[in-house]
Design a protein around this nucleic acid. Structure first.
Length: 103
RNA sequence: CUUGCCGGAUGGGUAGUCGCUCCCGCGAGGGAGAGGAAAGUCCGGUCUCCACAGGGCGGCGUGCCGGUUAACGGCCGGGGGGGUUCGCUCAAAGCGGGCUUCACGGAAAGUGCCACAGAAAAGAUACCGCCGGGGCGGGAAGCCGUUCCGGUAAGGGUGAAAAGGUGCGGCAAGAGCGCACCGCGCCCGGAGCAAUCCGGGUGGCAGGGUAAACCCCACGCGGAGCAAGACCAAAUAGGGGAGGAGGGGCGGCCCGUUCCGCUUGACUCCCGGGUAGGUUGCUAGAGCCGGGCAGCAAUGUUCGGCCCAGAGGAAUGACUACCGCCCGCAAGGGUACAGAAACCGGCUUAUAGUCCGGCAAGCUGC
RNA sequence: GCGGGCGUCGUUCAACGGACAGGAUGCCCGGUUACGAACCGGGAGACUGGAGGUUCAAGUCCUCCCGCCCGUA
């Protein structure tokens, strides 16, 4: 069912591009919690690189999760730069995305 | 001492804040949490399910000998080739040592293929040359030219490869034709479990290469894979069974609403298969650490101690500070290869620094 | 997890184990034309993905790596 959810967000969601990642956002049904998914294709690098990117992005999302008011369903496609970019920059980008969803 | 190359070992540490997965606990809280290769998936097993009388054919794999193991194409030991280096020796040959390397059964079972060159490439062969004899021509003659018949594998030339090698004798010229040494085959004796080695005798010598060409011989192998497999099990559709109206249809008695039989069947109950989903398999094991014993070793065995990730689109982290190590006067920079997916034994490949061993250069000292 | 295929001039395809790895297209030069296209003539362009091995000889056979593609549960 998870891959169906991803499909749904890709097909119907709004697209936001940034320097560190591309995100697809879709307003979820009221009552259910907000959900964020990540995609890490092999093109991003080997397993070590993919793991590191995922953990940094997830940490940034975790720290700014409160900014998100409504139960959005968001899929984030990180770029390769997300591995080496300074963490505050990554955090700022995530916050920008979440606050735009709020409006 | 400094570089470079090749093997082997190792694979940074201590705190703080905020998180993740699992376990223990009523709770507060506590505990555990990537690797030597977790990688490539090149081999072998464990474990599951499926198949299976026996035998033959076929297919795939392995290939000196012995050991080791659950098993292996791995590992250990030994043997035999090749390469390199050192020593013995005036030198060569030879012998011995070190290092290193080898898919190392069979080409006297059969088939195929060996380009070009070359006379000839596999039942050998006579192109040139060499030697003997005959004919013809020239010349006074020695002899020269030419042609025919025969001998020859020493020499030339070709080739990756041409029917043992070197030396002496021998011969018309030659030839293992004879002899010595080396090589090879066979026989005998000895050492060794064996591969094989050593010694003696004997045969003048079998006979090109290729099996990572087909093949022959010996040995081994049933097939799939944890998305294996097992259990629980919605919704919807459909299947089977039981009951079944006061509904529909057909039939029985002459007819029929009363009676009886058959059928259909709303509806009720039960059953199994099974999808989504969930649970399990799932981590105590050919396990790790230390010691003893057996063995040259791989390895085996025994005693004591320890419990060391189990997730499931997948946790093991993010950030900060300080200390290591390397580069730099400093500011500062660098700190490899790389992320478990049922589990285990190997192989292969990647790897910054640091340490150990070996080799090769260069510099320096005695 | 399992099992199958491919890698050759810039591109796309050839090459019984045997000479200088061959076309097509593209590229360059010259001709033709008033100038181009088309056409004609000539030329360059590859150590066959990498490293070893077998063989007298390897793009081809064998082993190990690298990269890419496909099938399947």
């Amino acid at each position: 069912m998870r891959s169906k959810d991803f499909r749904k967000v890709y097909d119907n969601g709004a697209k936001f591009s940034g320097p560190l990642f591309t995100a697809f956002c879709l307003r979820g049904t009221e009552g259910s919690g907000a959900r964020v998914g990540f995609t890490l294709p092999r093109a991003l690098g080997k397993a070590v690189v993919r793991n590191r990117i995922k953990r940094r992005v997830r940490e940034a999302v975790r720290r700014r999760f409160g900014v998100l008011g409504a139960p959005w369903e968001i899929v984030i496609n990180p770029r390769r730069r997300a591995e080496t970019a300074p963490f505050p920059d990554l955090e700022r980008e995530v916050e920008k995305l979440f606050s735009r969803c709020g409006t």
